[in-house]
């Protein structure tokens, strides 16, 4: 260890990996995947896997991924919801792994809601 900068580099790197333990703060974007039996049967596990891969690829550390159970819209599963702080929660239906990747690229990163996949409420 030769300098404080070197230490700060290790700190910032390690902090990203521990972000999740800071708990649910209002600052973070939340991605919620429907993981009830109906969701899993419709392929929510693959959707979840794609979400995690995409977050890792894009190095997004300000996003919290959680699951939820059946919300009663089983035919729309897998359901993926995005909640950006200060904005209403958006629910997408029939989210395949590919759709999940696009939702992260277009909605989570760039802030554009993909209207055609949104479940009407």
């Amino acid at each position: 260890m030769k300098s404080l900068d070197e230490l700060a580099k290790i700190r910032d790197e390690a902090r990203k990996k521990m972000e999740i333990r800071a708990g649910e703060s209002g600052e973070k974007t939340k991605i919620i995947v429907g993981m009830g039996t109906c969701g899993i049967a419709a392929g929510a596990r693959e959707t979840m896997g794609a979400v995690l891969q995409e977050l890792e690829k894009r190095n997004l550390d300000n996003v919290l991924v959680t699951q939820t159970g059946c919300v009663g819209l089983c035919e729309q599963e897998p359901i993926l919801e995005v909640e950006i702080p200060g904005q209403p929660r958006i629910s997408y239906g029939k989210v395949s792994a590919e759709k999940a990747r696009q939702i992260i690229a277009r909605h989570v990163v760039n802030g554009n809601i993909i209207g055609e996949w949104v479940i009407n409420r």
Partner: peptide, 24 residues
């Protein structure tokens, strides 16, 4: 809160910054 076997997790929570501050 941290994995005691991981120096990175200790550093992530501000570990060894005090030593660096004192020394420098």
């Amino acid at each position: 809160r941290i994995d005691p076997d991981s120096i990175e997790e200790y550093i992530a929570n501000g570990g060894y910054e005090a030593l660096g501050k004192a020394l420098t």
